[in-house]
Amino acid sequence: MAIVLEANYAKKLGLPNFSSHQYSVTIRTELTDLTQVEEASTRLYGILQDAVDREIQHVGFMPDASTYGMNNGNGHPSNGNGNGNGNGHRPPAADGWACTEGQQKLILQLVHDHRLDKGEIETMAQQLFGIGVKELNKMQASNLIDDLLEKVGKKSSRGRPRWQNREGARA
């Protein structure tokens, strides 16, 4: 009976302005017996890594951070009394972020202070919310900040948005 060996190599790299790109290659091969697995795995790993490394050097399209996604036609932001636009996303502010300035500053500060990988954070946002960091609304940004604080070993606390520094409250 033939043994099927499937090998996959994937690499994701961070790019400026919370961008990232990734590439992966998968290969399937048949082996005649189990003694061939170790050698085949080593060989395939080398081939796949070379292939991915060669291709991923081509960054391709890179958006202009000052203009890209600024006019997405999402409507108007909530007026604060509950009458929102119904789509869950605010149009990004002039600097391209949809969350508050305080949240934006805290995210960037955490990235800077703890040398976090922007690409990894972008991936986190994509995995959790299906959108990029800059597109996160206030609620999503708050949850991301909580996760980042946990990641850097700062315990999250109930009751007070983290991007503020006023008297605490019991919520």
């Binding site: 007026n79 604060g80 009394n81 206030k138 609620m139 999503q140 708050s142 949850n143 909580d146 999250s156 109930r158 009751g159 007070r160 948005p161 983290r162 503020q164 409250a169 919520a171």
Partner: peptide
């Protein structure tokens, strides 16, 4: 979920009211 134990706030000063703060357990 959409959100888990997330701290949020609403600035209600335009209504002459304080900023409302709270934590949503789950959305």
């Amino acid at each position: 979920p959409e959100a888990v134990e997330v701290p949020v706030e609403a600035d209600l000063h335009q209504h002459g009211l304080p900023t409302l703060i709270g934590v949503l357990d789950l959305v």
